[in-house]
Design a protein around this nucleic acid. Sequence first.
DNA 1: CTGTAAATAGCACGATCGGTCGTTCTATTG
DNA 2: CAATAGAACGACCGATCGTGCTATTTACAG
Lengths: 208, 208
Amino acid sequence: MMQNETTAGRRQRSDGVRTHAAILEAATRLASVTGLEGLTLGRLAAELGVSKSGLYAHFGSKEQLQLETIDAALEIFGREVIAPAEAAPGGLPRLEALLEAYFSYLERWVFPGGCFFASLLAEMDAGRGVVHEKVVATEREWLRHFEGYVEAARRSGALGPDVDVPQLTFELYACMELTNYHWVMFRDPAVLERGRRAVARLLAHART
Amino acid sequence: MMQNETTAGRRQRSDGVRTHAAILEAATRLASVTGLEGLTLGRLAAELGVSKSGLYAHFGSKEQLQLETIDAALEIFGREVIAPAEAAPGGLPRLEALLEAYFSYLERWVFPGGCFFASLLAEMDAGRGVVHEKVVATEREWLRHFEGYVEAARRSGALGPDVDVPQLTFELYACMELTNYHWVMFRDPAVLERGRRAVARLLAHART
DNA sequence: CTGTAAATAGCACGATCGGTCGTTCTATTG
DNA sequence: CAATAGAACGACCGATCGTGCTATTTACAG
């Protein structure tokens, strides 16, 4: 499992790992609304009913907490969005499964602040340091992965052999992101419908 | 001009209004990278070389500073993006002028943190209070305004009479937003090219 | 059962947060 | 010119930030 420099090589007690996981789970939910920068040890501790220092001992630094929070969110995202897509048959159906899984993930409020990673996108301006680099790397990785789905759909013949895959990926992703922001902001189901329609239209045009 | 409850009805000294404007100009630039929540009196004062209390006296509350900062940013956005579009001939050319003005506004780094309002979009989850409501209202107003351009292009006959105007507006806007985020994050000119291509493709499809 | 290290709490630190107060300086006006 | 009020300042408030250091409790290996 995951090991950081504070817990590495140390004996782990069962209640400790349980608390550790509980902290990260709460951290992902909190950070999805406040952002990673707005994530505060005090508020997190209060929400969990533990002391600030007791919580802090699990990570050794705020930076470490942020890094592990990203990993925890990645795990949730993988379970809620990637996994359903992987379960679908390859090619276009798998891409469509990914898109639908994403909208469903928004609809079910898996994170109380909307998509965790969308929250990070906007606040990573001032960014310096390890956390910023990890966010950028994660975004790159996600784009690469997403592009793989689109490329697979194209190769399967469902998408017309001349489609610009990175371009289409960008446009699909753009519609997903804006759907998230407007969904969080307006909380109007019509936003989700618009988002679903948008990606459907993009795919329809790519099919010719 | 703009008046708030602290300055309302008071005599204004010329050096005061100059400072007031200078504060807001710096605030828009700072907030574009830190967000409105991350906007701090201390950092803003330090950046301007004035005392925190001297700065604070101009607004009376942080909330008031945030509200006026939004207005100041709106003025800049109007000058840099809206005005060039209004100068163009109506119909499709005006819409295209708006889109190009936006990408140019990103390219020229009018705000050091990318699009000021895009920075607000993502952090408005936790939002309660007047500032949150103003951000939501501003977003609604922008969408309405933007939609007006698309509708005008459709009515001019340049866009095919059956296009779904709000839907197309959403898709155009989505590509603009993601362009901003990726431009700020990756600082790669290819991002701008992708954005420009995306909106061009959307318009091309709407033209049929 | 006991020894020990992990888990957690308590407490305090320096820095910074938004905000208040009293004072000094000076631009403007009558 | 004198009177007035806005501009700006430094000191300071209580709260909270991230981060240490120590003491206490407790789960688990031998």
